[in-house]
Amino acid sequence: MIRHVVMWKLRGNSPAERDTARRLVKMSVEAMRGEIPGMLSIELGLDASGVDYACDAVLVADFESQRALEGYGTHPAHLRMKAALGDIRVARFQVDYEIEDTSHAHP
């Protein structure tokens, strides 16, 4: 399995503008749930720390294979999400890594 982690710093000159941007990201990401072949799970978290060096949002998605992750990149649901977010992202960080599937492990 491949875990895809993306973190964003969002545009906004006030707490209200940043909150609006955070809600848009959450709604846009959650709209992809169940739409992407090979995506096993997707979660979006919003920062609760409030520290100035924190990202505003983090997406964590698990894919059954590298091929499934690559398909996600060009899937219409993902492209709609990217279009909906437009330029509200001022920084984006990403890490993709292989994880062991423990769902079939025997104790």
Rank of each mutant, 00 (worst) to 15 (best):
Asp62His: 07
His104Arg: 08
Met7Pro: 05
Val90Cys: 02
Ser41Phe: 04
Ala16Thr: 03
Ala84Gln: 09
Pro37His: 03
Met39His: 12
Asp47Gly: 15
His78Lys: 00
Glu98Gly: 12
Ser28Asn: 01
Glu35Val: 01
Leu59Pro: 03
Glu100Gly: 09
Ile2Pro: 15
Met7Cys: 14
Arg22Trp: 05
Leu85Met: 13
Glu30Asp: 08
Leu59Asn: 11
Glu35Tyr: 03
Ile2Gly: 10
Arg23Leu: 09
Ala77Trp: 07
Val6Lys: 01
Ile36Asp: 04
Asp62Arg: 00
Trp8Val: 09
Ala77Leu: 08
Leu69Ile: 06
Met27Thr: 14
Glu43Thr: 14
Met39Pro: 05
Ser65Val: 00
Ala57Glu: 04
Ala68Arg: 02
Ala91Gly: 15
Ser14Asp: 01
Tyr97Leu: 07
Pro76Asp: 07
Tyr53His: 11
Ser41Pro: 04
Arg22Met: 07
Val29Glu: 07
Ala68Gln: 09
Ser103Pro: 04
Leu44Glu: 12
His104Ser: 11
Arg92Glu: 10
Glu43Tyr: 12
Gly34Asp: 00
Arg67Asn: 02
Asp87Cys: 00
Arg3Ala: 06
Asp87Asn: 08
Gln66His: 13
Ala84His: 08
Ile36Phe: 03
Asp101Arg: 01
Asn13Leu: 04
Arg18Met: 04
Tyr72Asp: 08
Met39Ala: 08
Ala21Asn: 08
Gly86Met: 11
Thr20Ala: 03
Trp8Thr: 05
Leu24Trp: 03
Ala105Trp: 07
Arg33Pro: 01
Thr102Asp: 10
Val29Ser: 07
Ser65Lys: 01
His106Glu: 12
Leu24Ile: 00
Ala91Glu: 14
Leu24Gly: 06
Lys26Asn: 11
Gly73Glu: 04
Ala57Lys: 00
Ser49Gln: 10
Arg18Tyr: 03
Arg67Lys: 05
Met1Tyr: 12
Val25Ser: 03
Gly34Leu: 12
Asn13Pro: 02
Val5Met: 12
Leu40Pro: 06
Gly45Met: 06
His75Thr: 02
Arg33Ala: 12
Met1Glu: 12
Ile42Gly: 14
Leu79Ala: 13
Asp62Trp: 10
Arg89Ala: 15
Glu100Thr: 14
Phe93Trp: 10
Glu43Asp: 15
His78Pro: 05
Glu43Val: 12
Tyr72Gly: 07
Arg92Tyr: 07
Arg23Asn: 14
Ala57Val: 15
Thr102Gln: 14
Ser49Val: 11
Thr20Ser: 00
Gly38Asn: 02
Met32Arg: 00
Pro15Ile: 00
